[in-house]
């Protein structure tokens, strides 16, 4: 049976993880490779590395980092942040990443999705969408949530599916950072109306929140950052709880 995936997300700036990390066992607290390895040894199903520097000059650092991660980690990982061309995608793929996550660049140039999908396969492209509920409508934002777009979440999601992305990573800006749980309604809609896997992101605060998102909606995966980094939730414990609730997870 296909397991629901638990995905820690690591924010990277200048080659280092940025969110405060409370793992005493790690030698270099800020080293994304060591932290990624820790997670992969402790039950994570997949990792997402988001480069929040993402300026052109820093690209090279990112490619070198991806290479180091690929060398050490034996679970799949996605790399995102500022990927805007086929060349960016190719560099990250050949450095050893399994998938890339694209957000603003796809909004600016939707055909980028089909170009990447055609060249590297649709499994290689995860489309990240940040959206905010405003007057009963989910509005898509770009540039890390700073710029409002004309797009509406559900039609954008259908469009990117048609263009050829392999998965959708949806973050509700209303829920992100609140620790009050995932945005259940839009996630339910996405998981029911798309024929590609959906990853839930934004709002995880407790084990119960993960139980809720998997029982309420048919999302394939749930992503979180701080609850894992601060050890408020341990992935193995989370998975034990989920399996007690008949949610299938990889042990």
């Amino acid at each position: 049976m296909l397991a629901k995936r638990i995905i820690p997300c690591l924010d990277i700036k200048n080659g280092q993880t940025v969110k405060g990390i409370e793992f005493e066992s790690l030698k270099t607290v800020g080293d994304p490779v060591e932290l990624g390895k820790y997670y992969s040894d402790n039950g994570a199903d997949e990792l997402v590395f988001l480069d929040i520097t993402a300026t052109h000059e820093k690209r090279k650092t990112l490619v070198e980092l991806v290479h180091r991660i690929a060398k050490e980690i034996n679970i799949p990982f996605t790399v995102g942040g500022g990927i805007s061309t086929i060349e960016d995608a190719e560099a990250i793929l050949s450095a050893g990443a399994d998938k890339i996550s694209v957000n603003s660049a796809a909004i600016n140039k939707p055909e980028l999705i089909s170009e990447i999908a055609q060249k590297f396969g649709r499994q290689f492209i995860v489309l990240a969408i940040d959206a905010k509920l405003e007057n009963n409508e989910w509005i898509v934002y770009k540039n890390g949530g700073r710029i409002k777009t004309e797009l509406e979440l559900f039609s954008w999601a259908k469009q990117v599916e048609r263009l050829g992305c392999g998965e959708i990573l949806f973050t509700s800006m209303n829920h992100d950072g609140t620790k009050n749980g995932f945005a259940l309604e839009p996630l339910k809609w996405l998981a029911e109306n798309l024929n590609i896997p959906v990853i839930a992101s934004g709002g995880a605060g407790s084990i119960k929140d993960f139980e809720n998102v998997f029982s309420y909606s048919n999302v394939e995966a749930a992503l979180a950052a701080s609850v894992f980094h601060y050890r408020e939730i341990e992935i193995r414990k989370l998975k034990r709880q989920l399996s007690l609730h008949d949610i299938s997870v990889r042990d």
């Binding site: 049976m1 296909l2 397991a3 995936r5 199903d45 679970i75 799949p76 399994d98 649709r122 499994q123 392999g166 998965e167 798309l194 024929n195 590609i196 896997p197 394939e220 995966a221 990889r250 042990d251």
Partner: peptide, 30 residues
Amino acid sequence: KVPHVGWNTISNLKGDLFKNIPDNSYVYFV
């Protein structure tokens, strides 16, 4: 939902390639 992405179980394991691998182990598919 296609592609089939993620960890799924394998069973009816035969031969030396699966020596010491328990039935219903999870492996990664895409």
